[in-house]
Design a protein around this nucleic acid. Structure first.
Lengths: 215, 215
DNA sequence: AAACTAAAAGACAGAGTTGACTGTTTGTTG
DNA sequence: CAACAAACAGTCAACTCTGTCTTTTAGTTT
């Protein structure tokens, strides 16, 4: 009599995914305080009972969302590498791409969690370690993409500065569309990086073959 | 029979001030979603009725808090100028001071409002113009303090980048104490600024000792 | 001092939130 | 196919939040 056979494992996976996407969508649309469990279940088209079955408390739901978002951020970051020019305008392209990444919806959602975690010990306990890991990974990606030699004194700090800058730009972008300004600032910044890190050798060969790390 | 004579004007001023400080304190301690009107009146030691008399709605209270905070930010920023060395380490000192400003409590409170405003049209309507004005003022202060010639192409963008950078660092500082890292990054960036903007006369020794800052 | 107005207090209604709880359906397993 | 467990549905109580309303107190004005 069972019309369609759906194994439990799959059903669970689907339910959880629906709830988590709904949760993140709400985070983006209505912010942390506007994301109630009731709304999440409504938007996900899931009954309250089912929701409470999969995530017995709001904390559980949000923590799962944190994990899920982290994965999304990682994916988006990885996709960043593709399609970037390799020669002359490399640095500018990389920096702009980072800027876009930190001005997207995924970052917005993360920002909501970030700010909420500041005053929510439970959330901070989960988010803290994740952010630390994501931070390190992002740093590595940036170093990779730019092809920077981190043993040069001060180079590491400049990369960190670059990442904190795009974070700041992302913050500014939440309130008003800041794209044009961001473009200008980041282009200038990229030039600065080129000069300071000798990616464009001062006076001569544009960036001696610093072997590009693959992937 | 009246034991202490307090004119109405003064009473009003005091009440409003108590409520606003309580509101901002709560913003810092419990974040936007943790700042309920009930809590504000409790913390201020003001009855619910009195609160509603002075601020007939939560929106009214928060809007007044926005104004009040803006004033505080202005003051803090103005105080920044004092006590900064004038000669050699000027740029570093200025940049560090900016970094500290954007990592303080006042910034934290503003950040809560900022993020909340993203998904709250009414709040955004009030905060938007304020932030724009404060942004412009901060930019001017930075230009002043650094003594930058903004007619130089690209100089303006570098100042903007500096401010967005400290904003990003401020954001990072909310979750974990980031002081040491911030110091390093900003020192490095200050050197970069000196070089790029010719604040240190070209021809003089370009920063001989890159000794790592202690602490 | 009486009349008037602003300030302050606190109770209350209405809406919304969270999570517990009971019952029903669906898949899995012996 | 019978027994069992997981998944799903929906109601309910306790709590919190906001803003209205009535009442009392304190300062101002004539």
């Amino acid at each position: 009599m069972t019309t369609t056979r759906v194994p439990q494992e799959e059903r669970t996976r689907l339910m959880r995914e629906r709830l988590l996407t709904a949760c993140v969508e709400l985070l983006i649309e209505r912010g942390w305080s506007g994301t109630s469990t009731t709304l999440v279940s409504q938007r996900a088209g899931v009954s309250r009972g089912a929701q409470l079955h999969h995530f017995p408390s709001k904390a559980a739901l949000v923590m799962a969302a944190v994990e899920w978002l982290a994965e999304r951020r990682r994916e988006e970051l990885a996709a960043l590498a593709d399609g970037l020019p390799r020669g002359r305008g490399r640095t500018r392209a990389v920096v702009q791409a980072l800027g876009d990444h930190f001005s997207g919806e995924v970052f917005t959602a993360a920002l909501e969690l970030w700010v909420a975690a500041r005053t929510d010990a439970e959330l901070l306990g989960v988010l803290g370690p994740f952010e630390q890991r994501i931070g390190r990974e992002t740093h590595r990606v940036a170093v990779d993409l730019l092809g920077v030699d981190e043993t040069v004194p001060g180079a590491r700090e400049l990369i960190q500065a670059t990442l904190d800058l795009v974070r700041g730009l992302g913050l500014a972008n939440t309130i008003s569309d800041d794209t044009a300004r961001r473009r200008r600032i980041l282009n200038r910044w990229a030039d600065q990086l080129d000069e300071a890190l000798g990616l464009r050798a001062p006076g001569a060969a544009p960036r001696p073959d610093r072997k590009e790390t693959p992937r």
